[in-house]
């Protein structure tokens, strides 16, 4: 039975992949899981963002892995609770990434970036962009170091 099923799956798979490769499909599978626009893989529904006065476009370029740290400069304007929370997180000994700050705040990353952008304009926070390698997968020395590091954990 398993053999038949595997074969059946194989042709279904090929058809699906061919359709996707040629763009003839609509991009949506016909399986039951993908039918509704909102399924379980989408997250919660948020209320409007009072913290950012509804802004969802950061005015600074921040990567999810940019490291943000407090400069020690106190903003002249009084900060709301979310801005204050962000600033406290940025004051940690090890600069957190934008993704970590967003997770701690329980706010979407883009909203967190708006808050961070405000704090950067006040001079209260600086960001350090991640240093991505152009072709990290072709850097053998780096890959060996990563592999060694992973194996040490086993």
């Amino acid at each position: 039975m398993s053999a038949t099923r595997a074969t059946g799956a194989t042709s279904a798979v090929r058809a699906a992949r061919a359709a996707r490769a040629t763009g003839t499909g609509t991009g949506t599978r016909t399986g039951p899981r993908d039918t509704p626009w909102l399924d379980d893989s989408a997250g919660r529904v948020m209320r409007p963002y009072t913290a950012t006065s509804g802004r969802t476009r950061p005015d600074v370029a921040l990567d999810l892995l940019s490291l943000v740290s407090a400069t020690g400069v106190r903003p002249r304007t009084a900060l709301g609770p979310e801005h204050s929370h962000v600033l406290r997180l940025c004051a940690a000994a090890a600069a957190p990434s934008v993704a970590e700050v967003a997770a701690q705040l329980r706010l979407p990353a883009v909203v967190t970036k708006v808050l961070l952008g405000d704090l950067m304009r006040y001079g209260a926070v600086t960001a350090r962009a991640p240093r991505f390698l152009n072709d990290p997968a072709d850097d053998l020395t780096l890959l060996r170091a990563v592999l060694d590091g992973l194996r040490r954990r086993l």
């Binding site: 893989s41 529904v45 590091g149």
Partner: peptide
Amino acid sequence: GVESKTATTVALDFGRITLDSRHVLYLF
């Protein structure tokens, strides 16, 4: 530029592995 409606979010899992003093691996 202003989002006033309710908005749906999509979740990303985020993790970190410090391999050694110079290599930190982030997982999404």
